[in-house]
Design a protein around this nucleic acid. Structure first.
Length: 490
RNA sequence: GCACCGAUGGCGAAGUGGCUAACGCGCUGGUCUGCAAAACCAGUAUUCGUGGGUUCAAUUCCCACUCGGUGCUCCA
């Protein structure tokens, strides 16, 4: 497949080199709070890539780190009066719970910063031997950027222009050069620290990824991913550290997912447009719709997240699911309609080609909707045959292997979110209509639906419609068809 | 300030130097239905931010401007 490579700024073929599997690393979350939709847009697109590569028959070994010690964690844990391990455990658990809700597959390996300290220490020692790492008076260790002439090759920055610019950390006066970055931060009283050959302290942020990626994937990776903001300085620093230590290219391919806007503005707490996944679930939006929306705009484009588009995604998924059910129900005559068979083959081809072309999810999506229309249309015209259905379901499975929205476990996820809100004392944040919608059990709904069906049989339409309207106000939709009644939560 | 990215219908959003500018949602009308829902059909941008240029031909390439976003600092 072809994927844009930030290093070099071109679309390039992505394939494993020197190993049977593609070695892929993604900078994961810093677990100091619940994940927001911006975080998840990145992880979702990385998931889409991984699923597609696998589907294309490529073996992938995917490693993601969890940053479980850093300034924010130390600050927040102290404020909460908890040891950092206990504090981070909660948010890491929540992160993976949210990832599951969004259909993000778990990495092959999850690497924790706090369990890889010795690897970081030996990496820094390697740099120290070459005098690339140096110690300041306070016993912290820094990376000497002057010793890595290629610094800036990823983000293609002109450092000559910036070097003497206004923004220099005033409190880092001990460094030899303003841009030198911390590898190891000397311990401070009351802060979590490790006593190592480098002295007492804790790792800098950048060294984590270099050490862990190398530990689990070797000195040269096939692909390194992350949000666009990480390109500089984080990834640039990773390259500098890793390549200085190993003398080899750190990662051949770099993928960066662009930020999203919320209602046309940068998402931020001060703008009041900052949303975690849980916020949205409690507002009554479905996990599947959030996934679908977040991956529908190709990863290299800035996307504008709005509540209107979230509703649109919900409706689009309903269309797909309704169609899927229609195909599964079957009952079509034997044989194959050639026109539809051709349309199906074309949809499959277009779907694959779109994703293979730098992960154009918008086009891949369009290919599937083309198929839905063609098949629905053929079915209505009495042209759909069992042989077509078989192929259509296969293509639909292919699509869903990457998009993962056909299986409906939204109610389950929403219930879990409600339970969480209850437990955390945040139930007031849950939308009232959500509470009424889920107050009804499936059994109760079935009972009312049965009652309506018998009222209908007795041609008591007034009673039947009253039941239907009542359920409608509670968010439950009833559909009659030739072969029975179907209901679903809207 | 310097650098980079974007601007396509009511909304979201693909795409291309030249065939009717995808797809989804919405809306309007029709078919179906006891009525709905689902589904289908038809309609919904003579036009791709503004102004100039290159070209036989530009939404697509170039320049300027306007607006939005991003990076230069922790951030997915």
């Amino acid at each position: 497949m072809e994927l844009f490579n930030t290093l070099g700024g071109k679309v390039e073929n992505l394939e494993p080199v020197g190993a049977p599997e593609l070695r892929m690393y993604c900078c994961g979350p810093t677990v100091y709070d619940y994940g927001h939709i911006g975080n998840f847009r990145t992880f979702l697109h990385v998931d889409v890539l991984r699923r597609f590569l696998r589907q294309q028959g490529m073996a992938v070994k995917f490693v993601m780190n969890v940053t479980d010690v850093d300034d924010k964690i130390i600050r927040n844990a102290a404020a909460a009066g908890k040891p950092i391990a206990e504090y981070t455990e909660k948010y890491e658990h929540a992160f993976f719970e949210d990832s599951d809700s969004l259909g993000i597959l778990r990495p092959e390996i999850v690497a924790h910063a706090t369990s890889c300290i010795p690897d970081m220490v030996s990496l820094i020692q390697k740099l120290a031997e070459q005098d690339i790492a140096y110690q300041t008076e306070d016993s912290s260790w820094y990376f000497r950027i002057a010793r890595f002439p290629e610094y800036g090759k990823l983000s293609r920055k002109d450092f000559d222009g910036i070097e003497d610019g206004a923004r220099v950390d005033v409190d880092e006066y001990e460094k030899d050069a303003a841009r030198d970055f911390a590898l190891w931060k000397a311990c401070k009283p009351g802060e979590q620290s490790w006593t190592t050959e480098l002295g007492c302290g804790r790792p800098g942020w950048h060294i984590e990824c270099s050490a862990m990626a190398t530990k689990f994937l070797g000195e040269s990776l096939d692909l390194h991913c992350g949000g666009e903001d990480l390109m500089f300085p984080h990834h640039e620093n990773e390259i500098a550290q890793s390549e200085s230590a190993s003398g080899q290219p750190f990662a051949r391919h770099w993928m960066h997912v662009r930020f999203l806007l919320v209602e046309g503005r940068k998402m931020s707490k001060s703008e009041g447009n900052f949303y975690t996944l849980r916020d949205l679930l409690l507002k009554g939006y479905r996990a599947s719709a959030i996934r679908f929306l977040l991956i529908s705009v190709p990863y290299r484009h800035q996307m504008n997240f709005t509540f209107e588009s979230l509703l649109e995604s919900t409706n689009a998924i309903d269309r797909l699911r309704t169609f899927h059910q229609r195909m599964l129900k079957g009952g079509f005559p034997e044989g194959t309609d050639e026109t539809l068979a051709a349309a199906t083959a074309k949809a499959e081809e277009s779907y694959t080609a779109s994703l293979a072309n730098d992960l154009n999810t918008a086009e891949a999506r369009a290919a599937i909707f083309d198929l839905v229309r063609a098949a629905n249309s053929a079915a209505d015209a009495g042209m759909l045959r069992a042989g077509n259905v078989q192929e259509i379901l296969r293509v639909l499975d292919l699509f869903d292997g990457v998009f993962a929205v056909l299986k409906d476990n939204d109610a389950e996820i929403t219930r879990a979110a409600l339970a969480w809100a209850e437990k955390e004392g945040r139930s007031s944040e849950a939308a009232p209509e959500l509470v009424t919608k889920f107050a009804f059990s499936d059994d109760e709904i079935e009972k009312l639906v049965a009652e309506r069906t018998s009222a209908k049989k007795a041609r008591n339409f007034a009673r039947a419609d009253a039941i239907r309207n009542d359920l409608m106000t509670k968010g439950i939709l009833i559909e009659d068809s030739k072969d029975g009644v179907r209901w679903r939560r809207k």
